[in-house]
Simulated assay, not measured.
Amino acid sequence: MKVLVTGATGFVGRRFYQLATELGFQLLGQSRVRPSRDAERWIETCIDSNTKWSKTLHKVDCVVHCAARVHQMNESVDDANALYQEVNVLGTLNLARQAADAGVKRFVFLSSIKVNGESTSPNNPFKPEVGARPSDPYGASKWDAEQGLLDIAKETGLEVVIIRPPLVYGPGVKANFHSLLKWVDKAAPLPLGAINNQRSMVFLDNLISLMLECCENPNAAGQTFLVSDDHDISTSGLLKEVATAMKRPYRMLPIPESWLKLAASLLGKKHVGERLCSSLQLDITHTKQQLGWVPPVSFSEGIKETVDDYLKQKGKE
């Protein structure tokens, strides 16, 4: 099978490219800057409404679309919304239409659980159905892209598969999860001992496993899948799991949730406080039943691999 993977130098795309190659897939990677290795197997281009893909899509069986624009610092809301639409919506649909015209059979789209929303109420996890259009600009752009892809599928017969992951962690993780690793590494007391929320996450290799399944499984066509480790955990529980894997002291202060949210709000970090305290659970029953798939790596093993890589990279600094 010949697969074009976009965003192939990113956190998810890079791992997909590696594991798919090991499994014998014929890979063509897209990125804004072409790596020096395997140069003949890469295309260097941006993704927008004007990108020309026809030569790239020759004899491609499946497109795995990981590339997306995410939040950038120091930009206006209007600029951000326009760029989300240009890259995440128009760029995606431009690629999909050209893929359909080129005879590509399947289009696997890496969306986001933000399409469903930012949080869930107790015992009411997200399912593939969406109750309302997301208000977050990034989530809204992914939702718009999903709807456009489904329209293209109806018009052309292109098999569209949508995957909505929550927070993805694993070796090489950056951003908020990397910050969490550094907090635990310092062994400083953290004010999160009273947080009893429940959150779903997905280990990188579990996500890649599902993406690979969606490239070939006939039951994936036309479906929307939620994905997680199938193991929900509280913020304080997550920190304890990381501390155990890191062999660091686990020091949590039982500060009331309302105080934490107030402090975060006063510091201009209201969204951080909400994320630390709120629940976000995914029900992946449909994914498991439709595909006969289960996450191959346990949550504890995923945390251990992530921590081991963090400590290894730290030792190189």
Rank of each mutant, 00 (worst) to 15 (best):
A100E: 05
P218D: 15
V87H: 06
W293I: 07
R97V: 05
P249L: 00
S36D: 12
G103C: 07
L95V: 04
A221K: 08
G117T: 00
E159N: 10
T244I: 08
E22D: 11
L239A: 09
K312N: 09
Q290M: 15
I195P: 01
C66S: 11
K105D: 11
S31I: 07
L90W: 08
H271N: 11
P296F: 05
G139A: 01
C214A: 13
P254T: 11
R251D: 02
W143S: 01
T224C: 05
V161C: 09
F126Q: 07
Q281T: 15
I303H: 01
E118D: 12
N196M: 10
L27I: 15
Y138H: 12
Y169M: 01
N124E: 10
P218S: 12
I163W: 07
A99L: 04
L19C: 03
L23R: 14
H286E: 04
G172Q: 01
Q72H: 13
L267Y: 06
V184T: 01
D48F: 10
W183L: 15
T45V: 10
L149I: 04
A99V: 03
E305V: 14
N196H: 15
F177C: 03
P134L: 01
S234E: 00
W53V: 10
S112R: 00
P134D: 04
I195A: 02
D144T: 00
Q281I: 09
Q289A: 13
L311W: 00
M211G: 11
G292Y: 10
F126R: 00
A96T: 09
F299C: 09
A243R: 08
K312R: 13
A8N: 03
E216Q: 14
A187W: 09
Q281M: 12
N123E: 00
T306H: 07
A264M: 14
A82N: 02
I303R: 03
W53E: 06
V108S: 06
G315A: 07
A264K: 02
F126P: 12
K2L: 03
E216I: 15
N74I: 06
L253T: 07
I47H: 01
F225W: 01
A68L: 01
A140E: 10
I233F: 11
E22I: 01
K312T: 00
G103R: 02
V168D: 02
P218H: 15
K247V: 14
Y84G: 08
D229K: 15
I255E: 09
K288E: 04
G273I: 10
E216H: 15
I113F: 02
K114W: 03
Q289R: 13
A20N: 09
C277D: 05
K52F: 08
K240H: 15
A263I: 14
S135H: 10
T9V: 12
L207C: 05
C277K: 02
E305Q: 11
R32W: 06
L282C: 04
W42P: 01
L4T: 11
R164T: 08
W183V: 08
P295H: 07
F16Y: 14
C215F: 08
M252H: 12
V307T: 00
A67Y: 11
S236C: 07
R248F: 07
L83M: 13
V3A: 01
T235D: 00
G139T: 10
L90N: 15
K174V: 07
D230S: 15
D38S: 05
S236H: 04
F203G: 03
L204E: 05
P256K: 03
